[in-house]
């Protein structure tokens, strides 16, 4: 796993916006994760070098944030909101349904590497609770029946 030249260019472009390159750390992690799915130790090291930081400095930042993955995840991460409004309106039913349907517990990835199931805090759509994100897409007013539809669409097992 190494950085592509596109990624390197994108990172350097971001870095130029700031008084010093390490300020682009989060942008850089986002850029790389978008294409690689997660941040491996090797990638972390390369990004750190590019930004003139030690790997430890960058990891200190990477491990702080919820959306940076330092372990492999599936091609699509299912983030189900477990905050208050969704919790009240059935987030747990959805979670159970997903776990059963995909055969994974929270934090796990399906055998075919397609899905990882993770909780997430309020997605800012409480009026359409329960809400979940699959990859980049947000789904509203989700219930187990709708989940079957959605996962059907996106090619679930």
């Amino acid at each position: 796993m190494t950085l592509t030249s596109d990624e390197i260019q994108a990172i350097l472009r971001e870095a130029r916006h700031f008084p010093h390159p390490s300020a682009a750390a989060i942008e850089a992690l986002n850029v790389v994760q978008r294409s690689h799915g997660w941040i491996s130790d090797e990638l972390l090291q390369e990004i750190a070098e590019l930004l003139g930081m030690s790997p430890a400095e960058l990891d200190s930042i990477a491990t702080f944030y919820n959306l940076i993955y330092r372990r492999p995840v599936g091609r699509r991460v299912i983030h189900y909101c477990n905050s208050v409004s969704c919790w009240m309106l059935g987030a747990e039913d959805n979670r159970r349904h997903l776990s059963e349907k995909l055969g994974i517990a929270v934090g796990e990835t399906t055998g075919n590497g397609e899905y990882t199931l993770l909780p997430i805090v309020c997605l800012g759509a409480c009026d359409k609770a329960p809400v979940l994100m699959i990859g980049d897409e947000t789904h509203f007013n989700v219930d187990p029946a709708r989940l079957d539809d959605i996962l059907g669409e996106t090619g679930a097992p």
Partner: peptide, 11 residues
């Protein structure tokens, strides 16, 4: 940033 549970106005 709008991450407080219950808030969805800025979106």
């Amino acid at each position: 940033d709008e991450m407080e549970p219950g808030a969805f106005k800025d979106r």
